[in-house]
Amino acid sequence: QEELVKAFKALLKEEKFSSQGEIVAALQEQGFDNINQSKVSRMLTKFGAVRTRNAKMEMVYCLPAELGV
Rank of each mutant, 00 (worst) to 15 (best):
residue 1 Q to T: 12
residue 2 E to K: 10
residue 4 L to Y: 03
residue 4 L to P: 01
residue 4 L to Q: 02
residue 5 V to P: 03
residue 5 V to K: 08
residue 6 K to H: 10
residue 8 F to Q: 00
residue 8 F to I: 06
residue 9 K to D: 03
residue 9 K to G: 04
residue 10 A to S: 11
residue 10 A to W: 07
residue 11 L to N: 01
residue 12 L to F: 04
residue 12 L to Y: 01
residue 12 L to P: 00
residue 13 K to R: 15
residue 13 K to C: 06
residue 13 K to I: 10
residue 14 E to H: 06
residue 16 K to T: 08
residue 16 K to S: 08
residue 18 S to G: 13
residue 18 S to Y: 06
residue 18 S to M: 09
residue 20 Q to N: 07
residue 20 Q to M: 14
residue 21 G to C: 05
residue 23 I to N: 00
residue 23 I to G: 01
residue 24 V to P: 00
residue 26 A to L: 05
residue 26 A to P: 00
residue 26 A to M: 06
residue 26 A to R: 07
residue 27 L to P: 00
residue 27 L to Q: 00
residue 27 L to Y: 00
residue 27 L to G: 00
residue 29 E to W: 07
residue 29 E to A: 14
residue 30 Q to R: 10
residue 30 Q to L: 15
residue 31 G to P: 00
residue 32 F to Q: 01
residue 33 D to Q: 13
residue 33 D to T: 14
residue 33 D to F: 13
residue 33 D to E: 13
residue 35 I to F: 03
residue 37 Q to K: 15
residue 38 S to L: 11
residue 39 K to Q: 15
residue 39 K to M: 15
residue 39 K to W: 14
residue 41 S to I: 08
residue 41 S to D: 14
residue 42 R to H: 13
residue 43 M to A: 01
residue 44 L to T: 01
residue 45 T to F: 10
residue 45 T to V: 13
residue 46 K to Y: 15
residue 48 G to Y: 03
residue 48 G to R: 07
residue 48 G to D: 04
residue 48 G to Q: 07
residue 49 A to V: 08
residue 49 A to P: 02
residue 52 T to F: 07
residue 52 T to D: 05
residue 53 R to N: 08
residue 53 R to G: 04
residue 54 N to D: 04
residue 54 N to Q: 02
residue 54 N to G: 05
residue 54 N to P: 02
residue 55 A to V: 08
residue 56 K to G: 07
residue 56 K to I: 06
residue 58 E to C: 02
residue 60 V to C: 03
residue 60 V to D: 02
residue 61 Y to C: 02
residue 61 Y to K: 02
residue 62 C to F: 07
residue 62 C to K: 10
residue 62 C to R: 06
residue 62 C to G: 14
residue 62 C to Y: 08
residue 63 L to Y: 04
residue 63 L to N: 03
residue 66 E to L: 06
residue 66 E to K: 07
residue 67 L to G: 13
residue 68 G to S: 09
residue 69 V to C: 10
residue 69 V to M: 10
